[in-house]
Design a protein around this nucleic acid. Structure first.
Lengths: 126, 126
DNA sequence: CTGTATCCATATCGATACTG
DNA sequence: CAGTATCGATATGGATACAG
């Protein structure tokens, strides 16, 4: 994410574009709902309603909003079964699976350092 | 982050507490500013003003807010040099460094899949 | 069931002013 | 220089209603 000084040179234009896109992706994807959705989809394909149950506390709106965003970036694939009632399934794509690996890392980190963190928090709050 | 059904049994109380703390940490830390700050501090210790320059686009307020949060969880250490003008340095702790590894992973992921993502986004927007 | 749109309360954020 | 406090503008998110 090194986003520092550019010269005015024309060949920097591409770098600047790539950087700004990278930053946009980073800003959109680095939020808790997206992460929790990716984590849930890591196990298996899920329907909309299943996701609502799996991702504890997510609202209808946040779920659709984040699913659209993830779909837009090609991180999840949306498959509509034209039945009635409709059935829509969400699956992680390969880039999505790759991202999931890093989210998994963060989940592991959270549990590994839970003790440290809880202690630090108590110390700080005192 | 598996946060599913609990029985009413008393021994589940600890699990529930741990889970809710883990979720709180996750919710607080999984935001772009925290990530970008951690990323910047990964290289070396930085002062407040240096961080403002390194973390492009962060406001005074967001920077202090996130630094406090990271300090509270024991992810960064704040060292005040009682000089005048004051000099405050921020350093990643060991848990912070560990988290940085996963954030690095996400940065790497972003750049690796930039092409895929940009293509997907264009397809979606059309 | 899935998805969009709307309303409305609250949270977020940037700008600014001010203190040690 | 570092940090807090305040104030508006804006975004976020939940609840609800409705459509395919």
């Amino acid at each position: 994410m090194a986003t520092k000084q550019y010269t005015g040179s024309p060949e920097d234009a591409d770098l600047r574009r790539a950087d700004s896109l990278a930053r946009a992706i980073f800003s959109d994807v680095a939020n808790k709902w997206a992460f929790l959705i990716i984590e849930a989809l890591g196990e298996r394909t899920l329907r909309f309603s299943e996701l609502r149950n799996e991702v504890e506390g997510v609202s209808h709106k946040m779920l659709t909003q984040n699913l659209r965003m993830l779909e837009r970036y090609g991180l999840v694939e949306r498959e509509v079964h034209p039945t009635v009632p409709p059935r829509v399934e969400y699956t992680l794509t390969e880039p999505g699976q790759a991202l999931r690996a890093t989210v998994d890392g963060m989940c592991g980190w959270t549990h590994q350092y839970l003790g440290h963190i809880e202690a630090a928090r108590r110390r700080f709050d005192a």
